Amino acid sequence: MTATPSGEPAEAAPEQVHVLLADDQRLVRAGFRSILDDEPDLTVVGEAADGAEALRRCLELRPHVVLMDIRMPGTDGLEAARSIAAEPALADVRVVILTTFDEDDHIYAALRAGATGFLVKDTEPEELVHAVRVAARGEALISPSVTRRLIAEFAGRARPPRLPTALRALTSREREVLELVALGLSNDEIAARLVLSPATSKTHVSRIMTKLAVRDRAQLVVLAYESGLVSPGWITHPTPRRPI
């Protein structure tokens, strides 16, 4: 593992990322496998045709990332994502939802179910590969078209701020960082915006996740919007840069 200039370990994906494909269409799985297995650092370790099988295969294979279709016979992808997120033995498994259906309710439900990312199936191959690597690092990944829909979804649910007790425990700096996480900024982008070192930005995000008892950045996004800490209009009015 490499280190940042401050001496803290840098956030990185495993040297070899193991991927499980969960889709009821064999041809789709074959296509994804072809794309991912061409990458030297990515390996497809298994496949599943429905959500129940995906959960069993996760428990057996312990992949780093699951590419999960939403609509499958029997147990669907959302229920499987919930089961994976609720299983302590699979705490390090990240689920990226892949679907042809990008309606708002699926986006919202997938993130609430514990998914780390959400991509539509017409995503370009290089974006798919990037998504797997980002998810393996534990970061949230939502395609730009889906991000716009997600913001619109939360705008429709807008209500007066109602900060949970846990959010009140955050420092003012941590709230600033959470606001920027909710807008989709990476650790490096947050560091640049707030004039912090990347290591400090990463530390803030880790502490926020610990304080709020969430498993990844996607869950931070959901919590920030649902609590009213941030609102969709902030996307065009970012927090001004200022020194620490």
Results as ranks from 00 to 15, higher is better:
residue 232 P to Q: 06
residue 102 D to E: 13
residue 201 S to G: 15
residue 208 I to H: 06
residue 193 R to H: 07
residue 13 A to P: 03
residue 99 T to L: 04
residue 118 F to G: 03
residue 138 G to H: 04
residue 152 A to V: 05
residue 201 S to R: 00
residue 138 G to V: 05
residue 212 L to R: 10
residue 221 V to N: 04
residue 79 E to R: 08
residue 132 V to W: 07
residue 217 R to G: 02
residue 195 V to D: 09
residue 13 A to Q: 13
residue 239 T to V: 15
residue 189 E to M: 13
residue 178 L to C: 12
residue 201 S to P: 05
residue 195 V to M: 01
residue 77 G to Y: 03
residue 115 A to T: 01
residue 28 V to L: 06
residue 83 S to V: 01
residue 214 V to T: 14
residue 58 C to T: 10
residue 186 S to D: 08
residue 44 V to S: 09
residue 171 T to E: 02
residue 203 T to W: 05
residue 12 A to T: 14
residue 21 L to Q: 01
residue 122 D to Y: 07
residue 118 F to N: 06
residue 215 R to T: 14
residue 158 A to M: 13
residue 63 P to V: 08
residue 161 P to I: 08
residue 71 R to Y: 03
residue 106 H to T: 08
residue 25 Q to A: 14
residue 48 A to P: 04
residue 33 R to C: 00
residue 94 R to N: 14
residue 103 E to Y: 10
residue 196 L to W: 09
residue 49 A to F: 04
residue 150 L to D: 11
residue 156 G to E: 02
residue 138 G to F: 03
residue 217 R to L: 10
residue 136 A to E: 03
residue 197 S to M: 02
residue 9 P to A: 15
residue 119 L to F: 10
residue 211 K to G: 08
residue 85 A to W: 00
residue 7 G to I: 03
residue 54 A to E: 06
residue 14 P to T: 12
residue 178 L to A: 11
residue 145 S to V: 08
residue 119 L to V: 11
residue 59 L to C: 13
residue 169 A to C: 01
residue 215 R to W: 07
residue 71 R to T: 06
residue 146 V to G: 09
residue 129 V to S: 00
